[in-house]
């Protein structure tokens, strides 16, 4: 092989650092949010492992990935959900226009099976969404997944808990997810090739509030429960008022 060919082959490899960020943008897929795309130098890295460290369940960590999931699932790519912490609710995924036939929920019995299923999914070019559920895989195991992802065509996502931040991660991208206000997710960059860690951005999640007519105002005869000062008062007042405040 001539030296030019050799160089070109090296440039094609995604783990070759080329000193400029522009090359990294080629191997990303947009997150659907402009601020986040800017933070991540183009979007979620394709052919790489991405680790999302969320402060706790239910803050919007999965909603962040719904546009990406929709993008791939609509193109007939299988999305594997490995050990999700709860039962995924099908109607809400249908609302997000994700074809359910492309989603596969896999439950592993032990860490060995978890690692095997994750690796097989990545190697088969499926989109992997894996939850570690308090049992942090070893560095070498995660590196195995990262290496498998480099050879695949699709991104792989790993959801882990805040405890895992103490340990190093072989993932190409590692972000922390926190929230202090409902519907606003704050993203902190922990690791990304080509960018300094610590950068932050905020992502506004879909506003899930709905305006409803108060049931008692409806011109029909319905049996609405009698007023209870604790809860009913709340609905009348400011929405974000804390119950225990």
């Amino acid at each position: 092989m001539s030296s030019k060919n050799l160089l070109n082959a090296l440039f094609l490899r995604q783990d070759t650092w080329q000193g400029r960020n522009r090359s990294l943008r080629k191997h990303t897929i947009s997150t659907g949010d402009k601020n986040l795309d800017n933070l991540l130098l183009g979007g979620w890295p394709v052919s790489a492992l991405t680790e999302l460290v969320s402060q706790q369940d239910g803050i919007g960590e999965l909603s962040l990935l719904l546009p990406t999931m929709k993008h791939y699932a609509c193109r007939d790519t299988l999305c594997v959900w490995l050990d999700p912490p709860y039962q995924p609710y099908a109607p809400s995924l249908v609302n997000a226009e994700i074809p359910l036939e492309q989603l596969l929920v896999v439950r592993s019995k032990n860490s060995k099976e978890w690692l095997w299923a994750a690796e097989q999914s990545i190697r088969s070019n499926a989109i992997l969404f894996a939850w570690t559920n308090n049992s942090r895989p070893r560095y070498a195991e995660l590196r195995k997944l990262q290496l498998a992802a480099v050879e695949s065509y699709s991104p792989a996502f790993l959801f882990s808990t805040e405890n895992s931040l103490k340990a190093p991660s072989p993932a190409r991208l590692r972000i922390g997810l926190q929230t202090h206000k409902a519907n606003v997710l704050s993203v902190t960059l922990h690791k990304l090739k080509g960018k300094n860690p610590g950068a932050k951005t905020e992502v506004i999640l879909n506003n899930l509030q709905t305006e409803r007519t108060q049931l008692e105002q409806l011109p029909v005869n319905i049996s609405y429960p009698p007023k209870e000062p604790s809860t009913y008062q709340l609905l009348q007042n400011d929405e974000s008022q804390h119950l225990n405040a």
Binding site: D76, T77, L78, V80, P88, A90, P91, L93, V94, L100, E101, L103, L104, V105, V106, R107, S108, K109, E113, W116, A117, Q120, S121, S124, N125, A126
Partner: peptide
Amino acid sequence: LLDNQASELIDKLYARLGVDALSQLVT
């Protein structure tokens, strides 16, 4: 190729993890 890979993956997961380990969501 992708279609084949997806069905091959399902078969592999089936074979190794058992029938109960895999599920698909339906409404």
